[in-house]
Amino acid sequence: MFLQSINVLDVDLCVQQPDKFVAHTRASADLREIMPYLNSMFRTSTYNHDAGSIKFTNDKIEYTIIGDKINIAKFINRTELHELLDWLKDLVNDTYDSRSEIIPMYVCRKPVPVLFIYNLLPKTNCQQCGEKSCMVFAAQLNKLEIDIEACPILSEPEYTANRRRLEGAFGAFS
């Protein structure tokens, strides 16, 4: 097994969201070798090959890995933390075992600019997506914290071309 364990070093309140926690942990193996493969799998990842670090988000949980150090942020309690550690350990080991089938990605993804997204939106501020305005939707989409499908107007025929451009912009990086 590539990664035997991940040990929790400390748990603290999350600065960004004080009702959630952040944990600093240490893996039993240096994870640099696996990072280009994780980078390939997560469209939310920010990878720095030279620094040996990667950051990605999954189910609203943020993971930052630098060598053998792993920070996990925005979990609700310690039970969830241990579930996440189990998930991450399995993910790393599965990725390591399957790396011959994954094309590694050594470059950092570039985010799609907020204004580029905004210009393709209906700009009706209808709030059907659950956000306060189209600009907020664009900012959320830029951070990949909302799906394109959340905007129902983009599914209407007159917005087919805009939707395709948006999907292309994100698909090009995913």
Binding site: N7, V8, L9, D10, N77, R78, T79, E80, H82, E83, D86
Partner: peptide, 27 residues
């Protein structure tokens, strides 16, 4: 570290009970 080990033990016990009783999640 020992408090962290204790935490892990509690979690592992929940997980073992999940397996025994077919409970989806430790929480």
């Amino acid at each position: 570290s020992r408090a962290m080990e204790a935490d892990r033990l509690v979690y592992m016990t929940r997980k073992a009970l999940c397996k025994l009783l077919c409970v989806p999640r430790p929480g």
